[in-house]
């Protein structure tokens, strides 16, 4: 089953054509990577999926429903969670509080005026949050202020926060950007483990070919706002058009 279907999406910023005639379909329970050189429109496409941008034309269907015109929080409630390029967490709050917030969003919806009962009395939320933290091997850090953690741990926490909502689709925007090789490998292992443990579809935007070829089952190559090819990693590696548009330019990989 196709969980995400993008059809004929166009997006212009003034004179710049960021996306033109983008078509993309993602099979449920796969890891689908979107690669492409800088300025290819990867982030614009992702922003169209999560409600930050609205395409000029075209449709974006998630699980049979259109996401266009919906606010980011509504799209999240439909089952799409997003991880940012630089980890976006609640820096002033503790790790445990960071983890509890998505649990509340999952349980109570987009708004709940729960101003009288104390946070400590929400046993089910605490249990769930601790369980996810344990899964992420972060339970010992739960009283830490989140901003005091290392970048790798922040990334781990952010992914954990997304997973606590049991999303059907997880979007990752360059999850290893700016990471040392060891942290990158840890992140790859973490994502592999996540994938093996549950039914989840992952769409990943990535520069690092090492990450892409370690994780992806399908790859879409984007260049100048248009998808060039979509294929398996093996076929992409040898594809002449791809070498020309992308791999040729970054021979280091």
């Amino acid at each position: 089953m196709k969980i995400l279907e993008v059809k004929d999406v166009n997006k212009r910023f003034g004179g710049l054509k960021a996306l033109s005639e983008v078509n993309l379909s993602v099979e449920e329970n796969t890891v689908h990577a979107i690669i492409g050189p800088n300025g290819a429109g990867k982030s614009t496409l992702l922003n169209c999926l999560v409600g930050k941008l609205i395409p000029d034309t075209g449709s974006v269907m998630f699980n049979g429903q259109s996401v266009l015109g919906r606010a980011p929080h509504e799209i999240n409630q439909m089952g799409i969670s997003r991880v940012f390029q630089t980890p976006e967490i609640f820096g002033d709050l503790t790790v445990m509080e960071n983890m509890m917030i998505p649990c509340f969003a999952k349980r109570d919806g987009a708004f709940e005026l729960n101003a009288i009962s104390s946070v400590q009395s929400q046993k089910d939320i605490i249990e769930h949050a601790e369980h996810v933290l344990d899964d992420m091997n972060m339970l010992d850090k739960r009283h830490m202020v989140a901003s005091a953690m290392s970048r790798g741990d922040k990334r781990r926490l952010e992914i954990g926060m997304c997973l606590s909502q049991e999303p059907r689709l997880l979007l990752l925007d360059e999850p290893t950007a700016g990471m040392a090789r060891a942290d990158t490998n840890n992140t790859i292992d973490l994502l592999k483990e996540i994938k093996s443990k549950r039914d989840i579809t992952i769409v990943i935007i990535e520069h690092d070919m090492h990450v892409v070829f370690s994780l992806a089952e399908r790859i879409t190559v984007l260049a100048q706002g248009t998808p060039l090819v979509e294929d398996t990693p093996e076929n992409i590696k040898g594809h002449p058009k791809v070498r020309e548009a992308y791999l040729g330019e970054s021979s280091g990989h």
Binding site: V50, A71, P72, H73, N76, Q77, S81, R82, F84, E88, I89, F90, G91, D92, L93, E97, I101, P102, F104, A105, K106, G109, A110, F111, M161, Q165
Partner: peptide, 16 residues
């Protein structure tokens, strides 16, 4: 407090 800390993250966490 989460709004003060990171409003964007809160929006993308499904909270209005």
């Amino acid at each position: 407090r989460a709004i003060k800390a990171n409003q964007q993250r809160l929006n993308y966490t499904g909270l209005n």
